[in-house]
């Protein structure tokens, strides 16, 4: 299978800050991959990197086996049609002075698409996304937040991209309508054999939509796993804590959250050794001095931890003892 995305030892520096630190992974064509992480984990930097809005400081990013840098030099328009980004703030991503129709016409013009064919595809998408054609004549302020999200997705898909990077496509949407939009996206993804990188803080969404997950912390990938494997038994203590918090909010089987101590450290001054050791409930001496490599645990999993599986997941979720008392560093 061809790799749609591959990153090899990619770092991005902002001055002294490492936005991304030695990130390597691949996404196969047609895969749905989830990306999970909190503030400062590097999710947004990664998004911008994949659509060519930011260059890697070191390492190489390849899209369909060709380096982004080369593609931007030789045929940037074609590259931009290949990879499309749906931004987190859909309303802000639509120009307030342009009617939806004009926003879309601009896309067609910039990419010199055959107009008739392009509009036919747009009308198909309007229909598929559950919108009515009359919405094309409205201004962004005249449509609801949910509709704005659909339009942002529509605009990205209007170019028939092969890779869709969606940064929290359902954030801010009510839970009662999120499912509908995600179902539509999954259908379209299958139809077009899209490669889909989904960034979301909502683990329920990640679990249902993706087949593989990357977990990031402070600019690094700390765990990469098939989705079911991760949710059944996370290996990295950070993944374990994140999943336990989510499980504690589950309605059917509420568990006890593992409450991590302290704050997410500043990427300006990341901890020595393992980046997670300052908050890790099972950190050992080695973790404070030696940065773990991202290593292969089994066929489906890589993890950046000296002691994978050492924070028990099941026990954490079902243990009757109270959560550890909290102290700040």
């Amino acid at each position: 299978m061809m790799n749609a995305v591959s990153l090899t030892d990619v770092s991005v520096f902002f001055g002294q800050v490492r936005g991304l630190d030695n990130v390597s992974f691949t996404i196969e064509a047609g895969e749905r991959v989830g990306l999970v992480g909190e503030s400062g984990s590097g999710k947004s930097t990664l998004c911008r990197l994949l659509v060519g809005l930011r260059a890697a400081t070191t390492g190489e990013v390849r899209i369909f086996e060709r380096s982004i840098t080369d593609q931007l030099k030789t045929d940037s328009s074609r590259f931009r049609r290949t990879v499309q980004l749906v931004m987190q703030d859909a309303v802000a991503s639509l120009s307030p002075r342009m009617r939806i129709r004009d926003l879309l016409a601009e896309v067609i013009k910039v990419h010199a698409l055959p107009a008739e064919e392009a509009w036919a595809w747009i009308e198909t998408l309007v229909d598929r996304l559950g919108l009515s054609v009359s919405i094309l004549d409205r201004y962004p302020h005249e449509i609801s937040g949910g509709q704005a999200r659909r339009i942002a997705i529509l605009r990205a898909l209007s170019l028939k991209p092969r890779i869709l990077v969606a940064d929290e496509p359902t954030a801010g949407l009510d839970v009662s309508v999120q499912g509908g939009l995600l179902n539509l996206l999954i259908d379209i993804q299958k139809e077009l054999s899209l490669t889909w990188l989904l960034i979301s803080h909502d683990l329920r969404v990640i679990r249902r939509v993706t087949s593989r997950v990357l977990v990031m912390y402070l600019g690094q990938v700390v765990e990469e796993s098939d989705t079911e494997g991760l949710f059944r038994m996370p290996a990295h203590p950070y993944s374990t804590a994140l999943l336990s918090v989510d499980a504690s909010n589950a309605l059917d089987r509420p568990g006890r959250p593992i409450v991590l101590q302290g704050e997410i450290p500043s990427p300006v001054n990341p901890p020595a050794g393992c980046r997670f050791h300052t908050r890790c409930p099972v950190a050992q001496a080695q973790c404070r001095t030696e940065m773990p490599r991202l290593r292969q645990l089994d066929a489906k999993r890589r993890v950046r931890c000296h002691y994978p599986y050492s924070l028990p997941f099941d026990q954490a979720v079902h243990s009757p003892q109270s959560s550890p008392r909290e102290t700040s560093p």
Binding site: E38, S39, H201, A241, L242, V245, D246, S248, P257, I258, V259, L260, E263, I264, R279, S323, E326
Partner: peptide
């Protein structure tokens, strides 16, 4: 963030 939310709820 999720892990900070968990801290505040525990608090």
């Amino acid at each position: 963030d999720a892990t900070i939310e968990a801290q505040i709820i525990a608090l």
